[in-house]
């Protein structure tokens, strides 16, 4: 990736003007280093297009089958995990409002947990030919359907070649928080596995560890992970700030 990346993107998505496009094409022919860098970028762009098409086809198959919802949830295959910005905005406002209200009342950590906990959307899974024999695909379906007890039992059978270990740990933690009689301590341990490996789910793991710690009545641990979010790349920063003010 170079500083040219956004120009590459504009070229590939067709948003350069005719003149700019012509200049770009000329440079591709004249500058080998530029052409090589662009080709490396284009490979990534094409891979994302491929994944996007696969996702769109699943939605179209859902519509064709008359199974409905797709992105709106309840689809035959899986829920699509993209949240609408309206939903996100509403949840941020609601979370901050609820936190302020709870702060004023000087509430217990478990109440803060209940006010802020929202299930993380189901993983978007590329289904194998035989979904019934693929525990990770089946897990995604159960989780998306809110059947967390069954999902929790199944996730222990998912192997490394079916899904990355950190993602399995993350969803195991989710199930511990969401299932009946789940153990917040086990959830914290699962999220800790996510934090100990190199992956891009650290911010999510900090957020849910903080919530699990509140459920486990451990506000000191919750504060520690909320502070980690404030030091991070901006994910959930406003919610973390608001929650920190309310944690006893």
């Amino acid at each position: 990736m170079t500083e040219e990346s956004s120009t590459y993107e504009f070229y590939l998505n067709g948003s350069l003007s005719g003149e700019e496009r012509l200049a770009f094409d000329r440079r591709l022919l004249a500058d080998q280093v530029f052409a090589e860098d662009f080709n490396r970028f284009r490979e990534m762009w094409q891979l994302v297009q491929l994944a996007g098409e696969a996702q769109l086809r699943r939605r179209l198959m859902d519509i064709h089958a008359g199974a409905g919802a797709g992105r709106e949830g309840g689809g035959r295959i899986r829920r699509i995990r993209t949240w609408s910005w309206l939903a996100v905005a509403a949840s941020v406002i609601a979370a901050i409002g609820i936190t302020w209200f709870l702060y004023e009342r000087n509430v217990r950590p478990a109440e803060l947990y209940a006010a802020h906990m929202q299930a993380y959307p189901a993983p978007d899974i590329v289904r194998s030919e035989d979904a019934a024999a693929d525990p990770w695909s089946r897990f995604g379906e159960l989780y998306a359907a809110g059947r967390y007890d069954e999902a929790h039992r199944l996730i222990t059978t998912v192997t490394d070649d079916q899904a990355p270990a950190y993602m399995v740990s993350f969803y195991r933690g989710q199930c511990e928080l969401l299932r009946n009689g789940g153990d917040p301590g086990a959830a914290i341990a699962a999220f800790d596995e996510v934090l100990r490996s190199d992956n891009d789910m650290h911010a999510l793991a900090h957020w849910y560890t903080a919530l699990a710690a509140l459920k486990a009545d451990d506000p000191a641990k919750a504060r520690m992970h909320l502070h980690a979010l404030l030091d991070g790349d901006g994910y959930k920063r406003e919610q973390a700030k608001a929650l920190l003010r309310a944690v006893p």
Binding site: L47, A51, T82, V126, A203, Y235
Partner: peptide, 19 residues
């Protein structure tokens, strides 16, 4: 499958941006 290994947050980010 390789794209899936990228992780949920990154997949979402790149899909929203590129696709």
């Amino acid at each position: 499958a390789m794209f899936d290994r990228l992780g949920e947050a990154c997949r979402q980010m790149l899909m929203l941006s590129f696709y």
